Computed example of a mutant assay.
Amino acid sequence: MMVWGVSLIYFILGWIFFTRTFRFYALVSSLLLAIALHNVLQSRLLVILYIAILAGVFFALLLLKRSPDKKGTLYFSLPCWLLIATVLINVFF
């Protein structure tokens, strides 16, 4: 249940602060985040690390002087990288 809540908050914050329009890639990105978080639920440290990375990137993007669309693209590509990291962690550890 926590996984879907974090993904929903991620989607809503990205929509409010970056895109302000519905984008299909934003929805898919939120689903990828839910998958990544679901795969690391066995380790609380990884969950906390992933959420800290999400928060850090969110605040860093708020401070950047770029257009909201470019920020949105960067913001919504982060779950793809987290999912790749999750797969690598599960394969090698």
Score class of each variant (00 low, 15 high):
residue 1 M to W: 07
residue 1 M to S: 11
residue 3 V to R: 05
residue 4 W to L: 14
residue 7 S to P: 08
residue 8 L to I: 15
residue 8 L to H: 10
residue 9 I to V: 15
residue 11 F to V: 08
residue 12 I to V: 15
residue 14 G to I: 01
residue 15 W to D: 02
residue 15 W to F: 15
residue 15 W to H: 14
residue 15 W to G: 01
residue 15 W to C: 02
residue 16 I to S: 05
residue 16 I to W: 10
residue 17 F to N: 06
residue 17 F to S: 01
residue 17 F to Y: 14
residue 20 R to D: 04
residue 20 R to S: 04
residue 21 T to Y: 05
residue 22 F to K: 11
residue 22 F to H: 10
residue 22 F to P: 03
residue 25 Y to G: 03
residue 29 S to H: 00
residue 30 S to K: 05
residue 31 L to N: 03
residue 35 I to R: 02
residue 38 H to F: 13
residue 38 H to W: 12
residue 39 N to L: 14
residue 40 V to H: 00
residue 44 R to Y: 10
residue 45 L to M: 14
residue 47 V to A: 07
residue 47 V to Q: 07
residue 47 V to E: 02
residue 51 I to F: 08
residue 51 I to T: 14
residue 52 A to T: 14
residue 53 I to P: 01
residue 55 A to V: 15
residue 59 F to I: 12
residue 60 A to R: 09
residue 61 L to R: 03
residue 61 L to F: 07
residue 61 L to Q: 03
residue 62 L to R: 11
residue 63 L to V: 07
residue 64 L to N: 09
residue 64 L to W: 11
residue 65 K to D: 15
residue 66 R to T: 09
residue 67 S to V: 07
residue 68 P to N: 13
residue 72 G to W: 00
residue 75 Y to E: 01
residue 76 F to A: 00
residue 76 F to E: 00
residue 77 S to E: 08
residue 78 L to Y: 00
residue 80 C to Y: 09
residue 86 T to I: 05
residue 87 V to H: 09
residue 88 L to W: 04
residue 88 L to S: 11
residue 89 I to E: 10
residue 90 N to M: 11
residue 92 F to N: 12
residue 92 F to S: 13
residue 92 F to M: 11
